[in-house]
Design a protein around this nucleic acid. Structure first.
Lengths: 237, 237
DNA sequence: ACAAAAGTGTTCCTAATACACCCATGA
DNA sequence: TCATGGGTGTATTAGGAACACTTTTGT
C-alpha cells in the first residue's frame, strides 16, 4: 500500500539541533528559587543558564529531560513534577547553529533540593537563585524563565500543583505561605483555610510540628486528587 | 571573553528533523470541523493528515507555520488566530527518521474557510472533517488532534478565544450556539446572555439579521478585549 | 395558523470577601 | 513577658443556576 522510502532522502534537508531545557522551581527561605547551572563550555562559558542539553536520537523528549537532570545535577526525575512548557526556536537564539529548544518546567520539594549534586565537567557550578535576583542568563533563557514563572503562577491559581513544592507533611500556614510567595500577594488566613477545607484536598496526619512557637497540626496532600481549582481566573483586558 | 567556536562542531551529533503541524478548527453547519489534507507522498500516501511540513533553517516556528498554511491551502495567516499547542517527539512517530513536531492550533472564521484553496502537488486533497467523524490519520496525528480539541474546549472556558470562530457580525444565539457546539452541552439562553453582557465584550452593530424567522440584532466583538473568562474552571479529581 | 428563533426577570443558593480576637509555645 | 505563628466564625455581597412565557417573522 505504501510506496516505500525510495522517494525520501532523510539527509536531503538541513536540520536544526534540538535541545531540552529545564526550569526547576523550589521554595527556599520563603523565596521562590530556580535552579541555574554555570556553563563550562563555549558558548556562554562561565555564564549562568538553565540546565539542559541536546536530545539523543532514541529517547523521548521526557526521557531527554530526565537524563539531563540526572547528568547535570544528579536528581532522579521520578517523583519530580515535570511538564512541557513551550518550544522556543527563533533562529539566532544559539550562536552555534540553529537550535530549537523544548522547555520543561518542574517543581522540587525541599527534600529534593537537598539531594542536588551538581556533576562537575560540562558545568562548573549550580545554585538556586531567587527569581527576584537573577544573574544575567545565557541564550534566551531569561525569556524562557519569565515564561515559566508566568505559567507557574497561572497553574497555581487553578490547580493544586503547588503541593509539589511542599514537603510530604506541612502545616496549613506553610501551605498558605507557599501560595503567597508564588502569587506575590497576601491571602486572608481564615478565607484561605475555608477554601482549602472546601476543596477537600488535604488531610491531617496526626503529627504535630513543634518549633519556635505554638505547635501546629501537620497535614498531607490527598494523593487521589490530581488537581483542584484554587480560585477563579481573573479577567484579562 | 568567550572561548569561541573552536571547541564546538555542529555536525558532531546526529540531529532529528523538525516539523510544524497545524490544527485549524472551524464551525461549519453547526459542527466543529478540522482541516485535513490528503498526502501525495510516502509515507502515508493517500492518507489524511494534518497540514504541516519541515521547518527551514532561517524561519521562526511561527513563520514556518504561516508558510505551510500558505503553501498547502493558500491561506494568509494574517488575521488567523494561531497559538503553539505542544511538541510531540517520540522516536518512531515518523517512519522516515526521527521527527519532532511542534504543533500549532488555529481558529478559522467562516469567511476564511471559503478562501481555502488547496495547492495540488504534495497534497492531493483537503477537506474540513467533523471532529466526530474523523478518518484514519497518518503518523500520531490523531493524538495531536485530540490534544488540540481538549485545549480548544479548555481555552473556551476561560478566554474569549471563541470569537475567532465567528464572522465579524453575529447574533447572540450564533454565539451561544458556538459555545454549545464546542463544549458539547446545552447552555441556558438567559443565563448565557446575562454572562455575555456582564463580561462586556460584545457591542451592537446596529445591523439586523433577517432570515427565515424573527430578525435578530447583530453584534460584534469588542476588539480591545483580548480574552475574558467565560466560566470558572471545574474541579478535576 | 403555525413553526421557529428572538427576546426578557426573578428567585434561590453557593461561594467569595471582609474582618478581630484569644491561644500556646520558646526565647 | 513578649514575639510569633496557631487557631477560630459571622455577616455581606456577587455570581451561578434553575426556570416560562410573549414577540416577530416567513411560509
Amino acid at each position: 500500500m505504501e510506496e516505500g522510502p525510495k522517494t525520501y532522502d532523510a539527509g536531503k534537508y538541513e536540520r536544526p539541533s534540538v535541545t531540552v531545557d529545564i526550569i526547576l522551581f523550589s521554595i527556599i527561605d520563603d523565596d521562590l528559587k530556580v535552579l541555574l547551572i554555570k556553563r563550562g563550555n563555549w558558548p556562554f562559558k562561565n555564564h549562568w543558564a538553565l540546565p539542559g542539553g541536546f536530545i539523543k536520537m532514541k529517547e523521548t523528549l521526557e526521557e531527554s529531560a530526565a537524563r539531563e537532570v540526572k547528568e547535570e545535577i544528579g536528581l532522579n526525575i521520578k517523583d519530580i513534577y515535570l511538564e512541557q512548557l513551550y518550544t522556543f526556536g527563533d533562529p539566532g537564539r544559539d550562536p552555534r547553529t540553529r537550535v530549537i529548544t523544548v522547555s520543561y518546567f518542574g517543581l522540587l520539594s525541599p527534600d529534593k533540593v537537598e539531594e542536588i549534586k551538581p556533576k562537575k565537567g560540562e558545568i562548573i557550578d549550580s545554585e538556586m537563585f531567587s527569581v527576584k535576583k537573577l544573574p544575567e542568563l545565557a541564550f534566551d533563557h531569561e525569556k524562557i524563565l519569565k515564561y515559566a514563572l508566568k505559567r507557574l503562577q497561572y497553574k497555581l491559581e487553578y490547580t493544586a500543583v503547588g503541593f509539589e513544592l511542599l514537603p510530604e507533611k506541612f502545616t496549613l500556614f506553610e501551605l498558605k505561605n507557599m501560595y503567597e510567595i508564588i502569587l506575590g500577594e497576601k491571602l486572608d488566613k481564615r478565607n484561605f483555610l475555608k477554601k482549602i477545607n472546601s476543596l477537600n484536598i488535604v488531610e491531617q496526619t496526626g503529627d504535630i510540628k513543634s518549633g519556635a512557637h505554638r505547635p501546629a497540626r501537620l497535614y498531607k496532600f490527598k494523593k487521589s486528587i490530581k488537581s483542584a481549582v484554587f480560585r477563579r481566573v481573573e479577567f484579562e483586558k
